[in-house]
Simulated assay, not measured.
Amino acid sequence: MPRQVALLLFVVSFLHCEGAAVKDELPAADNERPIVGILSQEQSLYLHSKYPEENYTSYIAASYVKHVEAAGARVVPILIGKQREYYRELMKKLNGVLFPGGATYFNQSNGYADAGQHIYEIAIEMNLAGEYFPIFGTCLGFELLIILASGQREPENRVRCYSYTNLPLDFTSDFRSSKMFSGTTKDIIDILSSENVTVNAHQFCIVDQNLEAFNLTDDWRVTSYSDDKHGVQFIASIEHRRFPFYGVQFHPEKISYEWKLSKQYPHSLNAIKSNRHFMDFFVNECRRSLHTFGNVEEENRYAIYNYEAKFTGVLGSQHHDIYFFEPRGIPKDQNSISNINKR
């Protein structure tokens, strides 16, 4: 466990026991111009093969961008492989961060997991200082949140879990007292709990034993479960008890914005409106943050609008369109592409 992570977790644990830091009363959702950062991730071998000359460093699936924008926020891409100060300075201007799903590994240096660790630790510092800063993790992003909360990388605090289907949610008995679902209308809850409208696409998951093994149950509350193809009951939604950190194992963004036929994503009206709840909720949490850029010109320099999404669905990608970042050109050592993880 890195020394700084251990120290931070000790401070968080101490303040939790002493009842200090984050106030019980939530700040009002007064920010009508929220800006959400979305963390990019390493280029995959498959995507590299489609754009070999560009040799992009990282990417973000456009479905996440559209999902955030549909909830009334703008997006700033957060690049991987940067120094801690890059993330700190950017987070002072953002109102929240989304950890997207994907297929990268957590043990790659200067990648998605390292950037996520910087963001997670800085967000804790900000919330302890009285600044409201939310994080939302989807699928891989949710797993990363729990692994970071566990305070170590190896062995990773998650289990093998195979689910590539659409499932309902099995809500916990007290889910209505959670922040994520306290204000959710009955019709949305009924759809989520009785229809196969949550898209699952993962081979790892978090189970109760992962929380118990690292004493996380005091800090994290489970609000729903689902079952994988072998009957493993995995945590489908979760939230931190003190900080505005949230996670779902499924993919709400795919319902409206991903169209690969072989994936058989549900696109019914019920599926669309029930899955909209999650990003609408998160962006409303981001409205409680009053961080701002210095001016409109600075906002524009960082915005996702500076990049053009590429139509990758026609190339066979699971993502309909993708934003790519920081092209490196053809590597001098062609063998270096073997280090790029497979999708």
Rank of each mutant, 00 (worst) to 15 (best):
C286R: 01
R276F: 14
N284Y: 06
A271S: 13
F282Q: 01
L290S: 07
E285N: 02
C286E: 00
F278K: 06
F278M: 02
R288L: 08
L290T: 11
S289W: 03
E285W: 05
K263G: 01
N270S: 14
Y257L: 09
A271E: 05
D280Y: 03
N284L: 07
V283A: 01
S289H: 04
W259R: 05
H277Q: 08
F278D: 01
Q264A: 09
A271K: 07
K260S: 10
S262P: 00
F278L: 09
N270P: 01
E285A: 04
H277L: 03
E285P: 03
L290K: 11
N275Q: 07
R287M: 07
R288M: 10
H277M: 06
H291V: 08
S256F: 00
F282A: 01
P266S: 05
W259S: 09
E258Y: 09
H277P: 00
P266I: 13
K263N: 12
L290E: 07
L290D: 04
E285D: 06
N275E: 08
H267R: 10
P266D: 03
S256M: 11
I272Y: 13
P266C: 06
K260F: 11
I272E: 05
M279E: 05
S289P: 01
L261N: 10
M279W: 03
Q264D: 10
D280H: 02
E258T: 10
D280A: 02
K273V: 15
A271H: 04
P266T: 11
E285L: 09
S256P: 02
A271M: 04
S268I: 13
E258K: 08
N284A: 04
Y257D: 02
L269I: 15
V283N: 01
F281I: 06
E285V: 04
L261C: 05
H291C: 11
K273M: 14
W259P: 06
E258L: 11
H291Y: 05
A271Y: 08
Y265I: 15
R276A: 12
D280K: 05
P266F: 11
R288S: 04
D280G: 02
F278W: 11
V283Y: 01
V283F: 03
K273C: 08
V283R: 02
S256R: 15
N284W: 07
D280E: 07
L261Y: 15
Y265P: 01
H267N: 12
S274M: 08
E285R: 04
H267M: 10
R288T: 08
S268G: 10
S274P: 03
K273T: 14
L269M: 12
R287F: 09
F278S: 00
L290A: 06
H277N: 01
E258D: 11
L269T: 14
Y257I: 07
S274T: 12
S268C: 07
N270Y: 08
R287I: 06
M279I: 15
S262T: 14
F282N: 02
S274R: 01
L290F: 10
